[in-house]
């Protein structure tokens, strides 16, 4: 069976090379038959990769330990469902998944491009095939999932037990959908630039693909945070770990793109910048895969031990060189014909927003690669810890929050003093009142007061926009409030979907602020029957219990939580010790409410039955996950195809446009 897998991947590699060459020749010599053949080759690459994936999947589910990959990532005691996640649990499998997802995106992008801009088809085939070739080269040479063992072991090593969790099962594929998704807009933009006949550099066509990739990346980050929170047992959800940063950087750049592309669409400005963001987002997605897959992060020496890192770096350099070369070639045609008309306008707010996003991305990049650079230059590894990231990102994040409220209400071209007063008085007053209220309630953290006041302000601006739109709709006879809201959102899905996404981000902001500023924690060693006060909770320890199962000894601390005299029920914090290895996992005791989370981790125990438990009260964490749900709703609404072209057409006088109007 391994032969069939190897054959499929090798065949896919040959076909990807063929697709690239046929597409280039087809475009160069105007041979539609060659382009059609190249497109068929792309479909066959997908088919053969799918076949290879089926071979690997079947080996994983059959626990065929003759496959080196299966022996390393599956074991008899592992629950069957997790054999599926073993597919992407290791490097070889995850690279195959990368290639497979890329083929899916290539087919989807080609389908849409051939309907909307058929002349871009050869370019999209060429770029997608070139990227495919690299990943196929990896899985056929240095990282083959089909290596076989001459003497198969009786049992496999299995995955790291920390990865055996439902959140970890969906986190990597979601993240990969985002990472790989950056290739589709990149391919469209490169094809448009090389073709030269698409005036905006293809960014408008690329927008939808970027939005989808951005959404997947967002959810990948949320799922990863949730996994970190419930599985790692350290009490938090974000640690500025390089692997997290690897996904955060393309997220920041693609968010910047989604804003600047609107300026390109409405005002034909920022064309060069927007194209650069697409290239950068793609580059960072490859860089992120390189960071997590090359071993460069643990040490520069482990990086040099495997050729994979060098290949990745080579490919990344080559791709960026080619992409920036193409952008430089078309630089003048992308130049905007007009400029900003006023400092106080929607486009300047977007420009400012872009500068902040890219500054954050650059700071995160610097902080992430600093240990590698310092080790390469001085031989000593200097790590940049979370305080660096917190100090740089938090103030910039607050600025972004302010812009999130201001930007959408500013008029295009030029905002008048009267419109500023009309739009910002009520939400601004609301934000100030909220801040004063928090101060009066005894909140003494200035950063948090500012963050919540800004959240209040932004929520106010969004509410105002909806209220105005609803009023207008009702004035036009759209009946009740529900009917008016439905008509409003359906009439301009991108605009109101965007507001809903902003609302989701606000919830995440509020959750992050609350939990990082107002959290409390306490570590206590308890005898059965002892109770401890944590925040407004009293937690009683009722004793330890031990069970065995799935190759692990599970020690559980039984806890019961109270607020005053009210019994909130029992909680269980446990730790699993895997037999025959040093692996341990934690199962945290968690009681979530919209106000706060009571979080307990079993840190240690004695033979006498005493337990050391780490308790945390994390305020508002639930709002982070709720933010993810709201963000999903907003993105789905924004992605649904509009019935008519939304928004203000270029050339409409500023005052003729009513905010919230259809």
């Amino acid at each position: 069976m391994a032969d069939l897998g190897r054959f499929s991947l090798f065949g896919a590699l040959v076909l990807a090379c063929y697709a690239l060459i046929a597409a280039v020749l087809g475009a160069r010599f105007r041979r539609p038959d060659l382009v059609a053949s190249a497109r068929r080759a792309v479909s066959m690459v997908a088919l053969l990769e799918g076949l290879a994936a089926c071979v690997l999947m079947s080996a994983l589910f059959r626990r065929d330990y003759a496959f080196a990959y299966v022996a390393a990532h599956v074991r008899d005691a592992q629950a069957g469902w997790y054999n599926l996640t073993s597919f992407w649990g290791g490097m070889e499998g995850s690279l195959l998944l990368w290639a497979l997802i890329l083929s899916g995106y290539s087919l989807a992008a080609l389908r849409s491009v051939s309907q909307e801009r058929p002349r871009l088809v050869p370019g999209v085939v060429a770029v997608c095939s070139a990227v495919s070739m690299f990943f196929l080269l990896m899985v056929t040479t240095v990282a083959s999932p089909f290596e076989t063992l001459p003497f198969p072991p009786a049992d496999g090593r299995g995955m790291n037990p920390l990865l055996l969790n439902p959140w970890m099962a969906i986190h990597p594929p979601t993240l990969y959908l985002g990472f790989v998704g950056m290739t589709a807009p990149f391919a469209v933009v490169m094809a448009a630039l090389v073709d030269g006949a698409v005036e905006d550099g293809g960014v408008l066509l690329a927008r939808r693909w970027m939005l989808w990739a951005w959404y997947c990346l967002s959810m990948g980050l949320v799922f990863g945070a949730k996994w970190s929170y419930v599985v790692l047992g350290w009490g938090g959800y974000w640690a500025w770990d390089p692997v997290e940063n690897a996904a955060f950087m393309p997220w920041l750049v693609s968010t910047a793109f989604l804003h600047s592309v609107m300026v390109q669409e409405r005002r034909a400005l920022l064309g060069q910048w927007t194209v650069l963001l697409v290239v950068l987002a793609f580059g960072l997605s490859i860089f992120g895969t390189f960071l997590t897959r090359s071993g460069v992060l643990s040490s520069i020496h482990s990086f040099t031990q495997s050729p994979l890192g060098a290949y990745f770096l080579g490919f990344l350099s080559l791709a960026m060189l080619a992409a920036f070369g193409v952008v430089a070639w078309r630089w003048e045609t992308l130049r905007s014909r007009s400029g900003l008309e006023a400092a106080l306008s929607r486009e300047s707010a977007f420009l400012f927003n872009n500068v902040i996003f890219v500054t954050i991305a650059f700071s995160v990049f610097l902080g992430t690669v600093f240990p590698v650079i310092s080790e390469a230059l001085t031989g000593r590894r200097v790590n940049v810890g979370p305080p660096f990231f917190d100090h740089v990102v938090a103030p910039l994040g607050l600025l972004l929050l302010l812009l999130m409220g201001v930007g959408p209400l500013l008029a295009w071209r030029r905002a008048s003093a009267a419109s500023l007063k009309r739009d910002f008085l009520a939400p601004g007053a609301g934000g100030v009142l909220l801040g004063l209220g928090l101060l009066a309630a005894g909140v003494r953290a200035p950063g948090a007061v500012l963050a919540f006041a800004l959240c209040g302000f932004v929520a106010g601006t969004i509410a105002l926009e909806f209220a105005r739109g609803i009023r207008l709709r009702r004035a036009h006879g759209d009946g009740g409030v529900v009917a008016a809201v439905t008509a409003l959102v359906a009439g301009n899905r991108r605009r109101y979907g965007g507001y809903i996404v902003h609302l989701g981000i606000l919830l995440v902001f509020a959750g992050v602020t609350g939990s990082s500023v107002f959290g409390t924690q306490r570590v206590a060693t308890l005898r059965p029957g002892d109770a401890v006060q944590v925040g407004h909770y009293r937690v009683r320890f009722d004793g330890l219990s031990e069970t065995t199962g799935r190759g692990a000894l599970v020690v559980t601390a039984r806890l019961r939580a109270f607020v005053g005299d009210r019994d909130l029920g029992s909680l269980q914090a446990s730790r699993s010790l895997f037999l025959g290895s040093t692996d341990t996992t934690t199962d945290v005791a968690l009681r979530s409410t919209p106000l706060d989370d009571l979080y307990a981790v079993l840190a240690g125990w004695t033979r006498d039955g005493d337990a050391t438990v780490r308790f945390l009260v994390n305020p508002l964490v639930m709002w982070i996950w709720a933010g993810g749900v709201v963000l999903t709703a907003g993105t789905l609404i924004a992605m649904l195809p509009a019935r008519r072209r939304a928004g203000v057409p270029v050339g409409v006088p500023v005052e003729a446009w009513t905010p919230g109007g259809p």
Binding site: M1, S8, L15, Y18, A36, R40, L47
Partner: peptide, 30 residues
Amino acid sequence: MMVGVMLVIAAAVAAWVLAPLRAPKEARPR
């Protein structure tokens, strides 16, 4: 057996991918 399967797959894939090139000129996709 496996070699036979692979050969059949290779032949089928190649035939399908190259089919547009073998079509008579006037029937080729535009």
